[in-house]
Design a binder for these strands. Sequence first.
DNA 1: CGCTTAGTTGACTCTTCTCAAAAGCAGTGG
DNA 2: CCACTGCTTTTGAGAAGAGTCAACTAAGCG
Lengths: 253, 253
Amino acid sequence: MTTDGCCTALIRKLEHFEKLSDEDKNLLVKSVARTAEFGAGSDIIGQGDKPDYVHLLVDGWAGRYKLLPDGGRNIMAFLIPGDLCDVNVALLEEMDHSIGALSSCKVALIPLATIRNLMDQNRTLARALWWGTLVDEAVLREWLVTVGSRPAQQRVGHLICEMLIRTEAVGLARDNSFDLPLTQQELADTMGMSLVHMNRTLQGLRSRELIITNGHTVTVENLRALIKFAAFDPLYLHQQAHKFRSMMQAKVA
Amino acid sequence: MTTDGCCTALIRKLEHFEKLSDEDKNLLVKSVARTAEFGAGSDIIGQGDKPDYVHLLVDGWAGRYKLLPDGGRNIMAFLIPGDLCDVNVALLEEMDHSIGALSSCKVALIPLATIRNLMDQNRTLARALWWGTLVDEAVLREWLVTVGSRPAQQRVGHLICEMLIRTEAVGLARDNSFDLPLTQQELADTMGMSLVHMNRTLQGLRSRELIITNGHTVTVENLRALIKFAAFDPLYLHQQAHKFRSMMQAKVA
DNA sequence: CGCTTAGTTGACTCTTCTCAAAAGCAGTGG
DNA sequence: CCACTGCTTTTGAGAAGAGTCAACTAAGCG
């Protein structure tokens, strides 16, 4: 069937928090009713929607965003495979923002009733899923600090550190290298800066030899240098980042 | 006993989401083990702490913050009476940020075990408390947009709209007027701008006659004008803002 | 090969920061 | 009652960061 493998990334992510039994995993896998595809640029969920399904991103990148009165848009979060788009609609009546596909995306649909049952009846899964939303919130806080208080190059450097760890946590990074399927305009909308300034900021990071870009692949040859430059502390990613803790220790020493 | 009335603001806030039975309310009230006082500037919870209690703010203002490598600090959220400081420690092992008293504060302490029992055994309260954290997350997203994409005066105007509604929702505002017990430095740390610029931004809002300040009391005589100026949409505050929805409708018409 | 989208560059403007100092406003002790 | 101290608010002026506009290049695609 077509829903096979939909949950591998999610399970992989959740197991950074706590071990799931085979039964737990099966419950997750079986909760997927069907999958859907979204082209780059299309909306997966729109502001004001009251979806009947919880959307689990299986493939591609998506973003939470709001449109601004002046016509611009602000991207508030990146969603990568394994991320749930809208567990919050289980409680909040209405989406207060939109979720758009940044690349072409494959999404697994879990009926709202199923997710509610799951969370009522399986303590472990309920805890794991809430853990996921709390981590999302921690990421949001860090982004707020980043956008509010870091200079442009460190801001972008910080983002790249984060996305390297997050892609790594779901098996999408290799050799300090990952696919970043975004335009510079989208990056600019994310970091709250203009396209031109984002372009020059990236050039700055390249000329400092902190990142290498090749098409939409980003490579960080010297992660330690980038971490230091961006003052990156992976604590806020909680258990997702344990592989990097040791590196941080070493750095301080 | 001294814990009387600790939960009035919290209950008032939660009832914007759903009606609580007398039994629910009693459970909440009885969950408070004791209260504590914190002087302005002191830490209620520090980064890295693993508190045994969930802290409920009863009186005063507090803020979530992180210290920056350059010595500055960034405030990521305001907490007012009725707000829970750290439901997240019920799941996350460790605080990834600190919570500091911005004015002198009174805090109710709820043992972690009690809150966990409550949430396991009382569906209504569990839903209501999670609703609270989801609203916190929505506020965080809006702040990210504000800091990233709005010009300074609109940024501060937006914040004042929000805090007027939030204080109103727990009975701390009267006649479009509320107490904002913060220094300009703290506001600057919140909005990601310098003290000097915050000072001039406030002067701008005053000269546009959008706000009136008297000591630490802020009055918004023409709320509709401020809402329009700051492009404020209370949707993200969810049910807390229903009193203001009608005004918005009127404005658009 | 022309069309469209994404990335790059230069020149100029405006916002915001920094440094530095003055002014207002408690509380404290003489 | 007044000088003194510490903290907050306010001003001024120059420097740096970031935005805008407009053009040009590069890359993918029918």
